[in-house]
């Protein structure tokens, strides 16, 4: 397994795109967070907003780049034919996927931490001046650390999807649809029961519950159970990906 990890780590760090994508995760997360944080103005009565959610809004964009990073980790191997060499060198396909998942999760969590901390810091600096208190308590710590974990789980979910779909453009389209479809449908339906259930089962809506620090009782799902739902999606997609990787030919017949 350690050889597999080493091999995947070598691939990840020598592919030119990786460093740019990681930088993209950090830049997009921090800049959208800064924009939203700076533009939030609350009156004396407060505006019912969650300071953690406001300062960490950048995750909505950052996760899209995380998904690209994860999708490319596997689909690039298919598009270049590298997968044949990888599987020749490491015939245990589950090991390959596990090593990829571990390296990817490590990279994402590291970049996520670098992205989330400045966002939280900006919230702490700017939001109290705009009428929104920013307490540094357990709930805030949970929101900040949980957002990093959220990005890691999004990477695993995307890796699983890409292992099944293989074609990178389709995989990323599928992942982003899966993430955004639940909150959009929940927003438009007026039936409150539907709304609550959609937000409870959607990977993004449930996972983002980890950012809740106020009005926890009125949220559709609690912070940790919410992250658990996302973890279940990620586990399910990796499981399906691993199964397909085992069952299928490494490369479909190609038309040259």
């Amino acid at each position: 397994m350690s050889e597999a990890l080493h091999a995947e780590w070598t691939k990840a760090r020598t592919v030119p795109g990786t460093i740019w994508l990681l930088a993209g995760v950090i830049t997009l997360t921090v800049s959208l967070g800064a924009l939203v944080t700076a533009s939030t103005k609350c009156g004396s009565a407060g505006c019912g907003q969650d300071p953690a959610r406001v300062s960490l809004t950048g995750i909505y964009l950052g996760q899209a780049v995380v998904a690209v990073l994860a999708v490319l980790a596997i689909s690039d191997e298919y598009s270049t034919g590298m997968i044949r060499i990888t599987l020749a060198a490491m015939p245990s396909r589950v090991t390959v996927l596990a090593a990829k998942a571990a390296v990817l999760a490590g990279l994402t969590v590291a970049a996520g931490a670098v992205a989330v901390l400045p966002s939280a810091l900006l919230g702490r600096l700017l939001l109290p001046g705009n009428g929104l208190g920013y307490p540094l308590d357990g709930a805030m710590l949970r929101a900040v650390a949980g957002s990093v974990l959220y990005l890691g789980l999004i990477a695993l979910l995307s890796l699983g999807v890409a292992t099944v779909v293989r074609e990178s453009a389709v995989a990323i389209g599928f992942v982003l649809t899966l993430l955004f479809v639940f909150p959009i449908v929940a927003h438009f339906v007026s039936n409150t029961t539907w709304q609550r259930h959609l937000e409870q089962i959607g990977p993004m809506t449930a996972g983002m519950a980890i950012q809740d620090t106020v009005n926890l009782a009125s949220q559709p799902i609690g912070p940790w159970p919410g992250l658990g739902v996302l973890a279940a999606w990620a586990a399910g997609s990796l499981l399906l990906g691993g199964l397909m990787l085992r069952l299928r030919d490494a490369l479909p017949a190609r038309r040259h």
Partner: peptide, 12 residues
């Protein structure tokens, strides 16, 4: 020239 980045950018 790469699908994933192009789709991601367009959706973003």
């Amino acid at each position: 020239r790469r699908g994933a980045s192009a789709v991601c950018t367009a959706i973003v």
